[in-house]
């Protein structure tokens, strides 16, 4: 879609763009450039000596078993969070789309967890699953399960997955519901003449909401990669050991705590590549969908 009627002004558009462009330059592009620059340098923690090392930092990072372990954790974590939160959301959306009494109330009551900060969600889940004071944590131990997420890496990973997914269901629910409600009634009407509800969902509704599903897939992966730092920081601090150290958490520990600037920047660069890829896929796809 291209606009034909436009305004002509030599200066105004630049003035309108100036604040956004200034912030972008100073706080986005310049630091990103610095990250690229630092990723090819080797610097001691006090910043006294700096040495140009080409792609050495990348080689070190990509062959580091700790980094590869963190890649593994990230893949498990983001797959689980995406599958769990999208699956539950789709189920709720399909049900809420049926004509049942109180649908609006249900919708409101399923929406609000979107407002809960990841770290606050972590605090809530900690209170439930704390091995000595948590309601369910104590119950699990009572049942003979050695529940202690501070000692058991798998349990820690499970807990951060649950807390991170819990918060994300609302978002996915709203999108799935909107997608389902956007299907023209005539299509459903036509389909209901010769198919049952399950068949109708899988062969009519599900394909029709595939743009929504695809969009949510990308959004959820981005969420699991980048926005869950708070959950992990508050619940497990990346531990025990490195069991819940995702890639983003490792950038933080290596850069802010261990002051390994080169290594941290190289990791930042790799993550930027991930975001660029995801965003490019998403944007191309959505642009095409919207403009037909």
């Amino acid at each position: 879609m291209r606009r034909r009627a436009i305004f002509h002004n030599k200066v105004l558009p630049y003035l309108l763009l100036a604040p956004q462009v200034a912030v972008t330059l100073v706080f986005f592009l310049w630091p990103a450039g610095q990250a690229i620059y630092q990723s090819v340098l080797l610097q001691d923690p006090f910043g006294l000596r700096t040495q140009f090392v080409w792609l050495e930092n990348f080689r070190v990072v990509l062959t580091d078993p700790l980094y590869l372990g963190s890649v593994r954790v990230t893949l498990i974590f983001s797959t689980a969070v995406t599958a769990l939160s999208m699956g539950a959301a789709l189920l709720f959306a399909v049900v809420a789309d049926m004509r049942i009494r109180g649908a609006t109330t249900y919708k409101t009551l399923l929406t609000w967890p979107y407002a809960v900060a990841p770290a606050v969600a972590a605090s809530l889940w900690l209170f439930i699953f704390h091995p000595s004071i948590g309601l369910l944590g104590r119950r699990l131990r009572y049942l003979g399960i050695a529940w202690d997420y501070k000692l058991n890496g798998n349990q820690a990973l499970l807990l951060v997955i649950l807390a991170a997914s819990w918060k994300q269901v609302s978002y996915n629910f709203l999108f799935f519901l909107a997608g389902l409600q956007a299907i023209p009634p005539s299509v459903i009407e036509a389909a209901s003449l010769d198919t049952g509800p399950a068949r109708r969902f899988w062969s009519i509704a599900f394909p029709l909401i595939s743009p929504t599903t695809f969009f949510l897939l990308v959004v959820n992966v981005v969420y699991a990669f980048f926005d869950t730092f708070g959950v992990i920081h508050a619940l497990t601090g990346g531990g025990p050991g490195k069991a819940t150290e995702t890639l983003i958490y490792k950038v933080y520990t290596d850069g802010v705590i261990n002051l390994d600037l080169g290594g941290s920047s190289a990791q930042s660069m790799i993550l930027m590549l991930v975001v660029v890829t995801l965003t490019a896929i998403q944007f191309r796809y959505i642009e095409r969908k919207v403009h037909y």
Binding site: F27, Q38, Y252
Partner: peptide
């Protein structure tokens, strides 16, 4: 800027 969330450029942004 969509592709440069603060999480991936922690140190340099802090420095700025």
């Amino acid at each position: 800027t969509l592709m440069l969330p603060v999480e991936v450029r922690i140190i340099p942004t802090y420095k700025v």
